[in-house]
């Protein structure tokens, strides 16, 4: 089975020059943890996720373990300021590399790619010009497998 058969079409996305703050509001209201980032012409440029935003808010010197515990720091104040600074930036400054698969990729290959890139909520299905055609999450694959197992769909 090929990717285009089970992908979700017309997914929600963010434009590369949108402000991070606005995108985050949209993500939270839609209960989405990741969005494809597109440039003009629907070309895939990256993904923005709650993790990628968070990794820009928590300082590197803490993430790296150089400063192990900071019970003495006003964490909310620090994080709030970092969030405010980040919210005004464009998505291109925060986005991460996407996990892309082609329209004719096999289901097994898409599943393997999702397992290898664990932190990605879903794979972006693109055509030959890197234009976004749809998305496939691990849940989509599992749903399809479950339906097959229950005999509701033909193999």
């Amino acid at each position: 089975m090929h990717a285009h058969k089970i992908m979700v079409r017309n997914p929600e996305s963010a434009h590369i020059d949108e402000q991070v703050g606005k995108v985050l509001v949209r993500m939270r209201s839609l209960k989405l943890r990741m969005l494809p980032v597109l440039s003009d012409g629907n070309h895939v440029e990256g993904v923005i996720s709650t993790y990628s935003v968070m990794s820009h808010i928590v300082p590197n010197y803490i993430v790296s373990g150089d400063l192990e515990s900071v019970p003495y720091a006003p964490d909310l104040g620090l994080l709030r300021r970092h969030y405010r600074e980040l919210a005004g930036k464009t998505v291109r400054e925060v986005m991460e590399k996407p996990l892309c698969v082609h329209l004719d990729e096999s289901l097994l290959s898409v599943a393997a790619a999702l397992c290898s890139f664990g932190k990605h909520e879903y794979a972006l299905v693109v055509d030959g010009d890197s234009r976004l055609m749809g998305v496939i999450s691990a849940g989509d694959i599992l749903d399809r497998l479950r339906l097959h197992a229950e005999g509701e769909l033909d193999a």
Binding site: P59, Y61, I62, D66, L67, V70, A73, P74, G77, L78, R81
Partner: peptide, 12 residues
């Protein structure tokens, strides 16, 4: 030095 990074971060 790591505390200095935290302090300069807080100071901006």
């Amino acid at each position: 030095a790591p505390v200095t990074l935290l302090i300069t971060d807080a100071l901006g």
